[in-house]
Computed example of a mutant assay.
Amino acid sequence: MTITLVIADDHPVVRDGLRGIFEGAEGFEVLGEAADGAEAVVLADRLRPDVVLMDLRMPGTDGVTAIRRLAERGNPARVLVLTTYDADSDVLPAIEAGATGYLLKDSPREALFQGVRAAARGEAVLSPAVASRLMGQLRAPAREELSRRELDVLRLIADGCTNKQAAARLFISEATVKTHLLHVYAKLGVKDRAAAVATAFQRGLFR
């Protein structure tokens, strides 16, 4: 299956480079390029890509605002942030706005391919550097403590497992995995997998 992409970055050289990387690999198709967040939203609405590669700091409409607008419009595209910034002030707002994942531009080419494939499947994607940053952040404590099984499920999700794969490893049904995830979301005060994994790292739930 071919994964379709829209690339949003204010630097033409970066857009050209990313287009070349993905068009030179099997299984990817770049549908369009955007120079700012507003253009990214327009293109995503018109072209309906599987994944939007979104820079954060762009003139005019920034990446976080664009991610939020796409979520508000119910656009099904998964947004994978691809930026040079891993500061605390950049990471969490992007994830909370609805980004499926967060990678840095110095990631190896294969990591970009894996990240886009995972994002297209709706899986949480976090580069190691970003995960480390999140672990150092202070947030409100969890409303309730996660059970051992809920932590087991969340660890597998953080490792990139799908619900089906997590179910197989834990010898439980896929429906039970989904139920555990819903409990995790409620206890951590988040709405999706990416935010759950980010919050778990940040609160030191994974050792």
Results as ranks from 00 to 15, higher is better:
I3M: 13
A8M: 05
H11I: 12
P12E: 10
V13W: 08
D16A: 14
L18R: 01
E23A: 11
F28E: 04
E29G: 01
L31N: 03
E33F: 06
E33Q: 13
D45R: 08
L47Q: 07
D50L: 03
P59H: 11
R69F: 00
R69G: 09
L70D: 06
A71F: 06
E72I: 12
R73P: 04
R78N: 15
V81A: 15
V81Y: 12
V81L: 15
T84A: 15
D88Y: 13
D88F: 13
L92F: 15
A94Q: 11
G98P: 05
A99Q: 10
T100H: 07
T100K: 05
G101S: 10
D106Y: 14
D106G: 03
P108R: 10
E110S: 12
F113M: 13
G115M: 07
A118V: 06
G122M: 10
E123V: 05
A129E: 09
S132V: 05
L134Q: 02
L134E: 00
M135K: 08
G136Q: 07
L138T: 07
R148E: 15
R148K: 08
L151Q: 07
R155G: 06
R155Y: 11
R155T: 13
D159Q: 14
G160F: 03
G160W: 03
Q165R: 09
A167D: 10
R169Y: 02
S173N: 08
T176N: 14
V177C: 14
K178F: 04
T179C: 06
H183E: 13
K191A: 14
A196S: 07
A196H: 00
V197Q: 06
A198P: 04
F201W: 13
Q202V: 00
F206W: 06
